[in-house]
């Protein structure tokens, strides 16, 4: 069969891929949504959140870092995988402090949208309520670490798109946290700009532009109009 040469199946449906493409990027390009948080097709994959886990020929692996291979059988929406993803998202919720009803990103937040997509109804695990430093030192940009999920998208975007290298992940284990690359460790001593990609790619409400809160009324926010999977599927 010649067509299996650059094709794999995703939940039974054939997906064509280009040499070197990851399962995630091939799926997204073909209009199939695989839940993800630390992935963005413009940036080098990181493979850390594990929300995008799929089963490839029987083995679980992160679809954003796994190269597509001809004839592979990829399962994404199997009940056990969805259940595992739900737990991962629960873990992200209890790790930080996410009070969605009061958050300016509510309705535009990918963490929240992925949770809805996966049918997560509660957090079930014990909350940690960590105390994390907030950085409101900059006139235009605020970093609220309570909502940071350590996805490193801002790190990559600042380095690779903005050419500024303003962020890094530091600490270890559960104390992993985002640090700002300035002598004071504060945003005010960086050349960050409200239009930086680093801010735009943040999937949560951790990096925000000031004075832009609650701009859209409930009902018109990003994920009110369209569930996250529909948005991705219609973009391609």
């Amino acid at each position: 069969m010649s067509e299996t040469k650059n094709t794999f199946t995703l939940d039974g449906q054939p997906v064509v891929f280009e040499a070197g493409q990851t399962i995630m990027n091939a799926a997204l390009a073909a209009g199939h949504y695989i839940p993800h948080l630390c992935h963005h097709r413009e940036f080098k994959p990181h493979g850390s959140c594990k929300v995008c886990t799929v089963r490839v020929n029987g083995w679980l692996s992160a679809s954003c870092t796994t190269p597509a291979s001809a004839g592979a059988k990829v399962e994404s929406e199997a009940p056990d995988i969805q259940e595992a993803r739900r737990r991962i998202v629960q873990m992200l919720f209890i790790e930080g402090n996410h009070f969605c009803p009061f958050c300016v990103k509510s309705g535009n937040c990918q963490l929240q949208a992925v949770a809805y997509h996966l049918g997560m109804e509660d957090t079930s695990l014990p909350h940690r309520f960590p105390s994390r430093a907030m950085d409101a030192s900059h006139p235009d940009v605020v970093l609220d670490r309570d909502r940071c999920i350590n996805c490193s998208l801002c790190v990559r975007a600042s380095r690779d798109a903005d050419g500024k290298d303003l962020f890094g992940l530091s600490g270890r284990g559960i104390d992993t946290h985002l640090v700002v690359n300035s002598s004071t460790g504060l945003l005010k001593d960086t050349n960050i700009d409200a239009n930086d990609r680093a801010i735009q790619v943040c999937p949560t409400g951790a990096l925000l532009v000031k004075r832009r809160g609650y701009e859209q009324p409930i009902g018109e926010r990003r994920f009110d109009a369209q569930a996250i999977e529909c948005e991705f599927e219609s973009k391609y």
């Binding site: 873990m91 209890i94 790790e95 284990g173």
Partner: peptide, 22 residues
């Protein structure tokens, strides 16, 4: 394990913490 988790990925970073708490 909780102490030694590098913190890169969610299931280990948060999972080892939950396991320890429980």
């Amino acid at each position: 394990f909780q102490h030694e988790s590098c913190g890169f990925c969610t299931p280990c970073r948060v999972g080892t913490t939950v396991l320890r708490q429980l």
